[in-house]
Each structure stands twice: as structure tokens, then as C-alpha cells.
């Protein structure tokens, strides 16, 4: 597991549901075929209404036309990120697009579990309203040991909540890796 995650921020509002993260019509692609997998990156966050995409200005597409990955590594969002359906395609699509971490005020349960147990992206929570502070395109640096995120653009540092109980699963890289390490499943 990396100890630093650094990259550009993409800022969203609250209640970003899984239909906005990956619209249902795209759920038909294979999650294992390398060529089809790229399409999940292409359509990641394509369901977000344009005015709310890339705050504070909005109207910034997460993935540029013709591209399969985003220029952004860290998602900043308000409350209840990932509400809606159970589709694991949602954190997967974000990972394929190049996202490594999300910092939100809170998460919907299934999305949060999927991030952790699938080892797709790290779901950080923070008590701060970063969606109102950070601007899309700001360069951020997350220090995983210190549970902080530094905004290199604005020179501010913000506190993140510790991952707590799920840290060991995140560190292992997902529920399977964790279960093997802890001897919770028969070795295949």
C-alpha cells in the first residue's frame, strides 16, 4: 500500500448516486475483458448533471471526450457519496478512470463496503466541508499514515477521519487478501 496519494482533485456535491457514477446502460460491459474494461473509465461519472460536474465552476467533464481515463486522482464530495444501487461497477469505474481515493463527508453503506472489500479506491471520511473549500484541479497530497490531506495549490492541510476497523482490509488490498492473511478462508 502506498503511503502517499498525490494528484488533482475533482469536486462534486452531495448525494452522488451510483447512477451518476456509472449509468445503468453501461453495466453490460465485461469487468474482466481488458478492452471492455476501458469503457468503464470512459463513462465514469458521466451521469452527473453537467452543472454539478467539477465544482465550483461546474460543466467540467470528469473524463475528456475521446479519453478512457481522467486527469484526476482524488474525488472530493459532500454527504452520502455512492448512494443508490449495489453496483460494484461504480467504484470499479472510478478506479479504471484513475481515481485512487475519495474524500467525502459520508458514504452509503454498500458503496463504502465495495470500495474497501474490492480494494478499488480508498474511501476517506472527513468532518470538514471540503467540497466547499477545494476547487476542481487543485493538487492534493494524502498522507495515509498521518490521515491528512494537503492542498498544494492553496497551501492548506485538512484532517481526515482514521479508517478505523477497515484499515486492515484496505491495507491488505481487499477482503480476499485480508481473509488469506488472517486465515479466514481455505487457501485456494
Amino acid at each position: 500500500m502506498e503511503s502517499i496519494i498525490q494528484g488533482k482533485a475533482f469536486v462534486l456535491g452531495r448525494n452522488i448516486d451510483t447512477d451518476q457514477i456509472i449509468p445503468a446502460e453501461h453495466l453490460v460491459y465485461s469487468l474482466s475483458d481488458p478492452e471492455e474494461v476501458k469503457l468503464y473509465g470512459k463513462y465514469a461519472l458521466s451521469g452527473v448533471p453537467p452543472a454539478q460536474s467539477g465544482l465550483p465552476e461546474g460543466n467540467i467533464p470528469f473524463v475528456r471526450e475521446g479519453s478512457f481515463t481522467a486527469d484526476y486522482t482524488i474525488i472530493i464530495a459532500g454527504q452520502n457519496f455512492g448512494c443508490g444501487s449495489s453496483r460494484e461497477h461504480a467504484p470499479f469505474a472510478l478506479q479504471v478512470a484513475g481515481v485512487k481515493a475519495i474524500i467525502a463527508e459520508s458514504y452509503a453503506r454498500i458503496f463504502y463496503r465495495n470500495c474497501v472489500d474490492g480494494g478499488f479506491v480508498i474511501p476517506y471520511e472527513t468532518a470538514m466541508h471540503l467540497a466547499q473549500t477545494v476547487k476542481t484541479g487543485d493538487e492534493l497530497k494524502i498522507d495515509i499514515k498521518a490521515n491528512t490531506v494537503e492542498n498544494l495549490t492553496s497551501k492548506e492541510t485538512y484532517q481526515l477521519n482514521a479508517l478505523g476497523d477497515v484499515f486492515n482490509i484496505v491495507e491488505a488490498g481487499g477482503i480476499f487478501a485480508y481473509a488469506r492473511k488472517e486465515n479466514l478462508m481455505a487457501q485456494s
Binding site: L31, S86, R87, E88, P91, I110, R113, N114, D117, G118, G119, G174, I175, F176, A179, L184, M185, A186
Partner: peptide
Amino acid sequence: IGNTDAAFILGT
């Protein structure tokens, strides 16, 4: 639940 959790249940 998601697919990874479901796959874990399928096996265990």
C-alpha cells in the same frame, strides 16, 4: 452487497 462480497460468500 457488491460483487466481491458476494463472491466471498459464494466460496465461504
